[in-house]
Nucleic acid binder design. Structure first.
Lengths: 208, 208
DNA sequence: ATTAGTTTGTGAATTACTTCACAAGCACGG
DNA sequence: CCGTGCTTGTGAAGTAATTCACAAACTAAT
């Protein structure tokens, strides 16, 4: 299949969240135009995005809401459950471990790691913080699909190396640094500083 | 000035973080090629990004690190201090209010709001949670530059309306919904679900 | 059946972004 | 002060993403 742009995947994810809302309202069909309006894009964009994966609509009618939701879930790989480990038992790690949205979408947090002696052994709901040195061994037994990295900048490169060695192929990075991984590992970075600076730029460069 | 792409601004922000590290190491100059390697891009990209704002390098030598840092800070509007209010005193709001990275970069959190009676009046370090109904009045007195929205999905549209009415022109949105604002308001959305689904897609569609 | 009114799916056109490639500028050594 | 070795800045070329625009497919009404 043709390479899919990241921006396309983000929009698919967005469409899915709209469809779920619409499904709850009980509407049966939706047009590309309505979806576009919800998502702040154009109807052509919506149709192009979907057409990359097949023809899901009916001309003259639009898209059947439950069918399209299901298709999107399938495309996004949300059918199965993904096993997630969180690395870094600090504030962000703690907030993430308790985030309900994870589980709702099929992302099951099955372990938490840290390198700080003081944190190891602490219990978070049903999870116990384990030493990062055990990650590779643990991964061999219980498979992890995704590692959420929420460590301080300094320790992040070393942590990422261990994650890669443990054979984990997807990383959600909250550390405020760029991380480098082999090309078969996918990384998404969420960097607060970068977002804030984007706003700062926008505020500074408004005409007027 | 010509319109600057969001991707460019993100890279500028990234370059700045590298430069700060390099400055600490005491290096005096850096080439576009080294900067590119750190950022996972190409030297041409780096030079093009910078050239949108002027000529900061010396041919044959590269860029003077402190000068370029300073220029980038200026471009990104990090010279001044921005006043930030946080809306939503839940887990994410609490984590953000205490996040040191805010202050370090000149983003000063000056108020916290919530609509939940039970939370109003609570003290977070030096801040007291105030009722959202006061936002507009408060904004008239103490100017807010940026609103961080960390509210549940349901209440977010109403909250955003109040933020806009209060005259705030930049929003950092952590709520898991798309928000719509007039075109003179800049929004950046951080959506966990979307990032996770991006990883899920990547894991599902790897060849093999 | 035929027509009017929708809305999809998709090549073609357009716009945006990235990479190429090279002249021009600078430092340094002889 | 000339040549060698680097590295910038930038038009031109190339690639990617978005938008246009319209035939084709469907419903409903007459």
């Amino acid at each position: 299949m043709k390479r899919i742009a990241e921006s396309t995947v983000r929009r698919l994810s967005l469409y899915l969240s709209f469809l779920e809302g619409i499904e709850r309202q009980g509407l049966k069909t939706i047009s590309s135009d309505e979806l576009a309006r919800l998502g702040g894009t154009t109807s052509a964009q919506v149709r192009k995005d979907l057409s990359l994966f097949g023809s899901f609509g009916k001309r003259g009618l639009g898209y059947a809401v439950p069918e399209l939701s299901e298709k999107l879930r399938e495309i996004l790989g949300l059918g199965k459950q993904w096993r997630v480990c969180i690395i870094g038992a600090g504030k962000i790690g703690a907030a993430l471990a308790r985030y309900r949205g994870f589980t709702e979408r099929g992302f099951i947090v099955t372990a938490v790691y840290d390198s700080d002696e003081a944190k190891i052994g602490k219990r978070w709901d049903s999870l116990t913080v384990r030493p990062i040195s055990e990650l590779e061994k643990d991964a061999a037994k219980q498979h992890f699909d995704i590692a959420v990295v929420a460590t301080p900048a300094e320790s992040t490169p070393a942590v990422v190396k261990q994650v890669v060695r443990a054979g984990i192929k997807a990383i959600l990075n909250f550390a405020p640094v760029q991380i480098s991984v082999p090309s078969d590992v996918t990384v998404r970075t969420v960097n607060m500083a970068m977002e804030l600076e984007g706003l700062s730029f926008a505020l500074s460069n408004r005409e007027g």
